[in-house]
Structures are given as C-alpha cells and as structure tokens.
C-alpha cells in the first residue's frame, strides 16, 4: 500500500438549492480510503451519506451542486470535472438491485454495455466475458442466466448481477450504497461474503455506505460516522465498537439488535436528523444527545484527535470545554 490514499474526500460541501433555502446536504465531509481497504460510512437516512456517494461518482443532479472541498482520486481532483477521465475506476452498487437493472434488457446486454466501454469487447468475446463475470459473482448456470431478464432473477441474484456489472468496468474502488438493505438477512450475509472475497482476489477498495452497524462490523476495516452532513467520528472498526467516542456512535451501536428487521430504522434514537441550511453554530446532535451540556448549544464542535488515528467531533473530548475531557 502506498502512502497516498486511493480516494480522499476533503471538506466536501454539497448544496441543494430550493426556492426557499439552501440545504447543506453534505457539510464538510472528510475521509479517505487506501488501496484495498474497506471503509464504512454509517449514518441514518438523511445524514448525507448517499449524497456523498453520488458526489464521488459525479452523479449529483440539479438542483444539487458540489460547492466546496475536493474529491481526490489518486491525487487528482474529480470535482474539477475530471470524472470522465476516471469512469470505471470507481464503480457503484446501489441499494435496490431490481431498480439498478434496466428491465427491458437482458443481464448480458447490460454487462456487455459496460464491457464495450471499458474493455472494448463486443460480440462473442463480450458475451463470454459477461458469463465469466457472472460466474465470478457466484451466479450458477451463468451461460443461461446471461440471456435472462432482470425480473427472472431473485433479489440476491440480481444484486450479484449488479456487482458483476460494476466489476465489468474493472474498478479500483467499489462504492456500495446500502448494497444489502433491500435483501433478506441470509442473502445479506452472502452478498457481504461475496464482496469480501472479491476484495481479497482483486485488491479492490470498497466504500460501504449503510445505516446498519451490523454490516459495518462484519465488513469494514475503518468507519466514518456521519451525522447531518458531517463526519462526527472516525476510527478503526474494532476500536469504534470497543470504545465509541461520540454519543451518536454510542446510540447507533445500541440499535444493533434491531438489525434483524432491515426496515427498522434505529428505533433507539429519538427525533430526526436535522437538515442544515446554514453554517453550524452548535452541535447538530445536541437536541437528541443524552449527554448534551450547555456549550453544546452555542459551540460547533471540531474534530479532536484521540488515541491512534481516530478522532471525534464532540465537546466532551475538548479539554477546554468539558470538565474532565475524558473519553468514556
């Protein structure tokens, strides 16, 4: 692994312009991914994690706009409209496999479409390669499946096909936006295993975007916890699970038992993620934070480095603010 991160997102700002206000969906997100690493971006729905994923791929549509920060891919800033040069280096797998596949084309057609662009394969060669890819992602009877339409596949199989489609671009980084949320628990585990396998074989870096702490625990090396458009804690996965530093992370961890029902959204945290419309003047978690104290409502917390490489943006860890300044 080289020193330079594969992908480095710095102070990313994505703003959606509506008639009434400017919504800061992503408000200064910073994190990095090294080659072959699996990094998680975890948060509730509405926290800005999906917009972050879309930004990395250059898929932010109007009225949204990237208004600040940089997304460095191997040191090159993608936000300066360099996505076209790196198409295929970064691939994405979306949440709902049935929605990621165009129902009017066969699985093979869609994989071949990517192969034509990125590996200049067509005709027989493309079909053969598509079948190989389907086999790689563990789809049985691939030569037949390649001619089937998306509706003929089960959810799990369809998600495998989507992953095959992403792999057809021969990417270095795979962004997985809630890749298992729409699937049954048993299928979830299989897809996670598959991703782990692929990563080991192909030295792929993976960015996992999810609300599910369970997925993070199973699949990632490093975690960024995102809340209201900001990363509030970053830490190696194991350390984070052992000693969560931010009250929000602790709340998320308490919600793990609920993960058997994929639809359930973190029932233990009361309230909703606020939608930032301007610069932060307080801790955005304060209204829901069980440990909030006075300063939390008047000071925006900065990241404080903790042991190891980890850091958290919480005034509890700011020696100048909180009484003890100790982590719990």
């Amino acid at each position: 692994m080289s020193d330079e991160p594969l992908l480095s997102v710095r102070d990313l700002e994505v703003v959606f312009h509506t008639e009434r206000e400017r919504i800061h969906a992503v408000d200064g997100v910073t994190f990095e991914i090294r080659e072959g690493q699996t990094v998680g971006l975890v948060g509730e729905s509405g926290s800005g994690k999906s917009v972050t994923a879309r930004s990395i791929l250059g898929l932010v549509d109007e009225p949204g706009r990237i208004e600040g920060g940089e997304i460095l891919y191997r040191g090159e800033d993608l936000t300066e409209d360099n996505w076209a040069d790196h198409r295929g280096d970064i691939a994405i797998v979306f949440q709902d496999p049935t929605n990621s596949l165009n129902p009017v084309y066969t699985i093979g057609n869609q994989i071949e479409e990517a192969l034509r662009i990125h590996q200049d394969l067509r005709g027989r060669a493309a079909t053969d390669r598509a079948i190989e890819l389907l086999e790689d992602v563990g789809i049985p009877d691939a030569p037949r499946r390649v001619d089937e339409y998306p509706h003929q596949l089960s959810g799990g199989m369809a998600q495998r096909a989507v992953i095959a489609m992403a792999l057809a671009c021969d990417p270095d980084l795979l962004v997985c936006d809630e890749p298992t949320t729409a699937l049954d628990v048993t299928i979830q585990a299989q897809i996670l295993d598959l991703l782990a396998e692929l990563q080991a074989e192909q030295d792929l870096a993976i960015l996992f975007i999810t609300h599910d702490m369970g997925v993070i625990e199973d699949a990632t090396d490093w975690v960024n916890v995102i809340y209201a458009g900001e990363v509030v804690e970053r830490a190696p996965t194991e350390a984070l699970f052992d000693h969560p530093a931010h009250p929000y992370t602790r709340a998320l961890l308490e919600s793990i038992p609920g993960r058997t029902d994929p639809d359930e959204r973190l029932p233990t945290i009361e309230g909703e993620v606020p939608t930032p419309t301007g610069p932060a003047t307080d801790c955005r978690f304060a209204p829901r934070c069980p440990e909030a104290f006075e300063d939390c409502r008047s000071v925006a917390p900065e990241h404080v480095s903790l042991d190891g490489d980890r850091s958290a943006a919480c005034l509890l860890h700011d020696p100048a603010r909180s009484d003890g300044g100790e982590r719990q």
Binding site: R54, L57, G58, L59, A84, R87, G88, I90, A91, I92, F94, N99, S100, L101, N102, Q110, E113, A114, I117, H118, V162, M165, A166, A168, C169
Partner: peptide, 9 residues
Amino acid sequence: WIDAAKSFG
C-alpha cells in the same frame, strides 16, 4: 439504472 449507466461512463 440511469445512474448506473452514467457511473460507468
């Protein structure tokens, strides 16, 4: 699938 197609260029 539109995003998927955009994402692979």
